[in-house]
């Protein structure tokens, strides 16, 4: 196991380096400049700016300069907000995004799994239909529409929750719910489908025959296997949700990471693009790794650290 983990960690570094390299050249390949403005700027001013950020050097040179600073985990200063370093941005944005993400993920996983299990137990019954209708709505109403509707109803018309910004727990409810509906629906459907499958397995029938209650069967036998597909998608879901959702952050004026990332790309703020990408990728790869480990622990049939068939 230790050897497997060590191997994977090494592979992670390689993967990350490949991502850094591709992203670096990708972002320099697309047209645009951090200093593009609709309004007038003289060429001399433009040149001063470029020189200031070493953007006048060949891309390869810039690449090695970047790798060097990356080795010390220094993401450099933002070009657009020149007094802020990218490290500071991530330090500010990530905790906010993570807080929101955890909250909505908790909502999504708990309600999704419960809905899914109920639906599976009552396969083709009324509860199943209701749960799945709920899930379909959750998937097919995208979160930006959901968010606007939630604000209009619950905040403007009924004045139960504040409209936007990020200052008190009450402010977190609407964005967390808006962000949770999609993943919740996905989890509900996945849980339902794999639960139905598991419930038809022989060992469940055996358990039933032994006279175990439905509750015992679900908790002791079925859930463990049924949740495997859920765990598979959880890795990417966690990474996606915790590093911020741009749309939700924009609508609710939440100072999270998603905003930095998207604005970084729109502004061609190269250090911000790189910094957020590296952070996000490292986080994501870590999550996928954890999922793989969790898989091995949860499913006795999978042995990860053994090579070959």
């Amino acid at each position: 196991m230790a050897k497997y983990v060590a191997n994977r960690l090494f592979a992670m570094l390689i993967t990350l380096w490949i991502i850094v390299t591709i992203t670096f050249f990708l972002m320099h390949a697309i047209p645009g400049s951090p200093f593009n403005q609709e309004r007038n700027t003289s060429e001399a001013v433009q040149r001063n700016l470029e020189a200031h950020y070493h953007l006048n050097e060949p891309v390869f040179v810039q690449y090695f300069i970047y790798l060097k600073s990356l080795a010390t985990l220094d993401f450099g200063p933002s070009i657009k907000q020149s007094s802020t370093s990218v490290n500071e941005m991530i330090g500010r944005g990530f905790p906010v995004s993570a807080e929101l993400g955890m909250l909505s993920l908790a909502i999504a996983v708990i309600s999704g799994v419960i809905l899914g299990i109920f639906a599976a137990l009552k396969h083709n019954g009324t509860i199943d239909y209701i749960a799945m209708t709920f899930a379909v709505i959750g998937i097919s109403v995208p979160n930006f529409i959901m968010a606007t509707l939630l604000i209009q109803q619950l905040a403007v018309n009924w004045e139960i929750f504040p409209v936007a910004t990020w200052s008190s727990p009450m402010h977190m409810v609407l964005p967390a719910v808006a962000l949770a509906t999609g993943p919740m629906a996905i989890i509900a459907r996945l849980t339902r489908s794999s639960m139905i499958e598991v419930l038809n397995q022989d060992y469940i029938l055996t358990a039933k025959a032994k006279g175990m209650s439905t509750y015992q069967i679900v908790i002791k036998h079925a859930m463990r296997n049924a949740l495997l597909p859920v765990i598979t998608i959880l890795g990417t879901l966690v990474a996606g949700v915790l590093t911020g959702s741009f749309v939700i952050e924009k609508i609710f004026a939440i100072p999270g990471m998603g905003k930095y990332f998207i604005n970084g790309i729109n502004d061609r703020d190269y250090p911000v693009i790189m910094g957020t990408t590296v952070f996000y990728s490292a986080f994501l790869i870590m999550m996928l790794f954890i999922v793989d480990i969790a898989y091995g622990i949860l499913d006795p049939r999978i042995k990860l650290h053994k090579r070959g068939n």
Binding site: T15, I19, T23, I262, I265, T277, Y280, S281, L288
Partner: peptide, 12 residues
């Protein structure tokens, strides 16, 4: 797959 996940989609 991890690399594909990690690359910024918007840039691509």
């Amino acid at each position: 797959i991890e690399i594909l996940y990690g690359l910024p989609y918007l840039l691509m």
